[in-house]
Write a protein that binds this DNA or RNA. Sequence first.
DNA 1: GTGGTCTAGACCACA
DNA 2: GTGGTCTAGACCACA
Lengths: 120, 120, 120, 120
Amino acid sequence: MCIKFENNIPIHIQIINHIKILIITGIYKPGEKIPSVRDLALEYKVNPNTIQKSLSELENIKLIYTESTNGKYVTDNKSIINKYKNEYIKTLTNNYINKMKELNLNKDDINEILGGIKWN
Amino acid sequence: MCIKFENNIPIHIQIINHIKILIITGIYKPGEKIPSVRDLALEYKVNPNTIQKSLSELENIKLIYTESTNGKYVTDNKSIINKYKNEYIKTLTNNYINKMKELNLNKDDINEILGGIKWN
Amino acid sequence: MCIKFENNIPIHIQIINHIKILIITGIYKPGEKIPSVRDLALEYKVNPNTIQKSLSELENIKLIYTESTNGKYVTDNKSIINKYKNEYIKTLTNNYINKMKELNLNKDDINEILGGIKWN
Amino acid sequence: MCIKFENNIPIHIQIINHIKILIITGIYKPGEKIPSVRDLALEYKVNPNTIQKSLSELENIKLIYTESTNGKYVTDNKSIINKYKNEYIKTLTNNYINKMKELNLNKDDINEILGGIKWN
DNA sequence: GTGGTCTAGACCACA
DNA sequence: GTGGTCTAGACCACA
């Protein structure tokens, strides 16, 4: 696990986003138990309270749930995961396109650029 | 001028990249005088030495040149600017595609996503 | 270590040239560790930042490289060293010949002068 | 006239050498009047006393002479000029060869290098 | 201990 | 006013 925190963005937000991506990309799988607050605090090198705050928010948006004495789990409702995945895809894509527009590139330019990519 | 510096990346590198993008996007035009070292230091709220270091590097890679005692100017060699523009496009595109791949999306998925974008 | 700095030439440039010659002449050998920034600052009696600046430039031109936290080393790429050696030879020779020309000496004169030198 | 003074060498010595070279190279011709102390002081941007000291030394070694109320002249004794010219040639040549030796080059190497020079 | 960054601030040349 | 140099000194990451 490796995350570089940025200035100007609250750390708990950055942790939310990081874990969200782990779930969206399937690194944390649906229904899978996620590490304990204590362990995550060690991994991210932050205070356990910060982790707690982040996980609460992830629970609010239904990406994880708590089994009372047992730990926290990734939701197994794949449609929720997909919803956030699509949202993330949209954000990435818009960011990409906006930067391309700043460079005065249009739809055709982008298609040409993507056409030249080799996929493996 | 507005730039939020990130942790973990030296400020002078971030300034290099920021000014590079201003040149690439044509906000700083070919042959145009750029603000003085002192003015940039005020704008970016850093020490003039830090600006000096950044501009030296931009001069090394030929994106700007110095007219001694007169100021610094964006190169008017558009092919150099284009070289860095293309490099930047490549980086943006690769980053975008790599994130898409992490989400298990392939070429067709991306084309479909881009096809659904409305251009204005 | 002994170096007399000249006026009118920035010290960091003089240090670059001095170390370059140490490498070219093989006093600093290929692959050998060079003294730390702090030690060189003491030797040359300048600020460590000035050494840092000089060594950065020597790294830019690939004559040295950095092993992070470990120190800086002379390149072990002998062809790079040779390139700068040949460049230096050329400069010395041109300077010598130009001064001879100022004295109205020609090729034959120089050959005669050199022919009279005793080699040991 | 342009001379950059070096540290660590007394300025009057540097001026002596500079004028000596002007005479040796024939820029100041045998028998020619040299500029007044006052004018030389302006040219070299030094105190007239410094010029006076330098010219005295040049007079001691017979490269110039004074016509009492009339000014100072380059000697018209060409054999004296030649003596210093030869001395200067010797110094230049020895310096050149010593630097070449530091680079582990020998007589044959130098001949080869000089053979490759294009003369015009 | 190693390299590296950044600031504050003095000072320089050029014109 | 412009770029450029240099120092003193604090501070950082890495290990």
